[in-house]
Lab assay of single mutants.
Amino acid sequence: MATGGRRGAAAAPLLVAVAALLLGAAGHLYPGEVCPGMDIRNNLTRLHELENCSVIEGHLQILLMFKTRPEDFRDLSFPKLIMITDYLLLFRVYGLESLKDLFPNLTVIRGSRLFFNYALVIFEMVHLKELGLYNLMNITRGSVRIEKNNELCYLATIDWSRILDSVEDNYIVLNKDDNEECGDICPGTAKGKTNCPATVINGQFVERCWTHSHCQKVCPTICKSHGCTAEGLCCHSECLGNCSQPDDPTKCVACRNFYLDGRCVETCPPPYYHFQDWRCVNFSFCQDLHHKCKNSRRQGCHQYVIHNNKCIPECPSGYTMNSSNLLCTPCLGPCPKVCHLLEGEKTIDSVTSAQELRGCTVINGSLIINIRGGNNLAAELEANLGLIEEISGYLKIRRSYALVSLSFFRKLRLIRGETLEIGNYSFYALDNQNLRQLWDWSKHNLTITQGKLFFHYNPKLCLSEIHKMEEVSGTKGRQERNDIALKTNGDQASCENELLKFSYIRTSFDKI
């Protein structure tokens, strides 16, 4: 039985969820670079991206490699990797027998973001014989899940209580170790020597080791999670996991709180800001991140802002960003909400898709409305799209047979046209069989910064309504002859009103 693990408890099935942008060198404390989270699957090609990484700022997932063999891993080693800020997950990587050479110096898994409450997941690794993470000293947050690894031993010899604050939620089941077939031998045991430290858990006094050649490092209890030197002297209180010299914040392997210019500090002093819960960055760093993602459509890219001495992905609820200094300031009234469309555009074809934009005031991208039916549609669209004030790209209304009016965009005031449909149009209306009105132009103002209007096959939309939009939106004169079809717009509506004058002759039985 794995020490510190839980057996036999019912657990939810383990679901495996399925960018080499360097964020800056980590400095003297770390020998390499800070790398983003990685999802490495199918083959070993991307694994080489770990070569210079000291910190993975995010998670590391290595999974679904069915053609790899043990010899493929023999020359692979990433000794610079010290810390993973989120979680480490391995799933069905064939041929991998140990992690001792792959990650010989991995010391800390912070667990800032977890995989279903777990910071370390080893699942269905069919050839893994031992973990071998002999320098792993601290899992700051989260638990361990090690399950269905039929060859995995050296679990009962690990004292997880020396690595985690609590072992109650560890789930370590259905491994070879369960069948008591392992016969784990710690260093020196074969020669009758006791080389590794022994600890007591559940009444068992057991030597602690990761492999037959690597003991588990056990520091004096007084050192807590700070770690200790090879001689057993406690590291500085700002260290986490390990250090090369005692009581020196510049000799830590990793930091308990924050890293700044080669030393570990309790908090980031001005003019620095907390970033990702582990390091200090200056304003320029946060500003660069903001600008890199301002026009990016890459998933996970955030326009970072500053709030409460932190550089964070977005302002919290009730705050909006001051564009001059990136500071989050309290909103006066309802907060603006910028919604970034991942692929640059979004099609609204149902109430469900409209709900995804609920509360958005600025759309960074283009909207395509293609709704053919739905219950209580006008009210639903207004509830979900009615706060949109600005669209950076274009607005396209296409084959939306259920629409009679666009009044559900009740606050839309600006279409920038930074991206144009077919390279020309910022407003595009095609084949809307029941569209009769755009907006009530006596109450609604709309500016279209650039781009043209396109109207074709809107049989109940009168040309007068379209011409009014040209005047109000500032697009009059931009359109070419064929942009607004004269014969297919309003051709099934009563669009022309003329005053009919009647004269009559009164007659009676005795007068003409």
Rank of each mutant, 00 (worst) to 15 (best):
H28G: 00
Y30A: 14
E33N: 11
M38P: 02
I40P: 00
I40N: 02
R46L: 08
E49F: 14
L50Q: 00
C53Y: 08
S54K: 06
S54N: 15
S54V: 06
V55Q: 04
E57W: 02
E57D: 15
E57K: 04
G58C: 02
G58F: 00
G58A: 00
H59Y: 05
H59Q: 05
H59L: 00
L60Y: 00
I62W: 02
I62D: 00
M65A: 07
K67E: 04
T68K: 04
R69W: 02
R69P: 02
R69E: 06
P70S: 07
R74K: 09
L76V: 13
L76M: 10
S77G: 13
P79M: 06
L81S: 01
I82Y: 14
M83S: 09
M83Q: 07
I84V: 03
I84P: 03
D86K: 03
Y87C: 00
L89R: 00
L89P: 01
R92S: 00
Y94G: 03
E97R: 14
S98P: 03
S98W: 00
L99M: 12
K100M: 09
D101N: 10
P104R: 02
P104V: 02
N105H: 05
T107H: 07
T107Q: 00
V108T: 12
V108Y: 05
V108G: 01
R110E: 05
G111L: 02
S112I: 14
N117P: 01
A119M: 00
L120G: 00
V121D: 01
V121W: 01
E124S: 02
E124L: 00
M125L: 01
V126T: 01
V126I: 03
H127V: 01
L128Y: 00
L128H: 00
K129E: 05
E130N: 13
G132V: 01
L136P: 00
L136G: 00
M137G: 10
M137V: 08
T140A: 06
T140H: 05
S143Q: 13
R145G: 00
R145F: 04
I146H: 00
K148S: 02
K148T: 00
N150L: 13
N150H: 08
Y154K: 05
L155V: 14
A156S: 11
I158H: 02
I158D: 03
I158S: 02
R162F: 04
I163S: 01
I163L: 09
L164S: 06
D165R: 12
D165A: 09
V167H: 12
Y171A: 06
Y171R: 03
N175D: 08
D177N: 09
D177V: 04
D178A: 14
N179D: 05
N179K: 15
E180R: 15
G183Q: 07
G183Y: 15
G183C: 15
D184I: 03
D184W: 13
D184H: 14
I185H: 06
P187T: 10
G188P: 06
T189I: 12
A190G: 09
A190I: 08
A190D: 03
K193L: 03
P197S: 15
T199H: 14
T199W: 10
T199D: 14
V200F: 10
I201M: 14
N202S: 08
F205N: 15
C209F: 02
W210S: 03
T211M: 00
H212M: 12
H214V: 12
H214I: 07
H214N: 09
H214P: 03
C215D: 05
C215P: 08
C215G: 01
Q216A: 03
K217M: 14
K217V: 11
C219S: 02
K224H: 07
K224T: 12
H226G: 12
H226R: 11
T229L: 11
E231F: 13
G232R: 07
L233G: 09
L233N: 13
C234G: 01
C235N: 01
H236P: 04
H236I: 02
S237W: 07
C239G: 02
L240Q: 11
G241W: 01
N242T: 11
C243L: 02
S244L: 10
S244M: 14
Q245L: 10
P246L: 14
P249H: 11
P249V: 06
T250K: 13
T250Y: 08
K251M: 13
C252A: 01
V253H: 09
C255H: 01
C255V: 04
R256G: 03
N257D: 04
F258M: 09
Y259L: 06
L260W: 03
L260I: 11
D261P: 05
G262Q: 15
V265Y: 12
F275G: 01
Q276Y: 09
Q276H: 02
Q276F: 08
R279F: 06
C280P: 00
F285M: 10
F285L: 08
F285E: 03
F285R: 03
C286N: 07
C286T: 15
C286S: 09
Q287V: 05
D288M: 11
H290T: 12
H290Q: 14
K292C: 07
C293M: 07
K294N: 08
R297G: 08
R298S: 07
R298I: 07
G300Y: 08
H302M: 15
Q303W: 04
Q303H: 06
Q303A: 09
Y304P: 03
V305W: 04
N308D: 12
N308M: 08
N309F: 13
N309H: 09
I312M: 02
S323D: 14
S324W: 04
L326Y: 11
C328Y: 02
T329H: 04
P330N: 03
L332Y: 04
L332A: 14
L332C: 09
C335F: 04
C335K: 01
P336I: 10
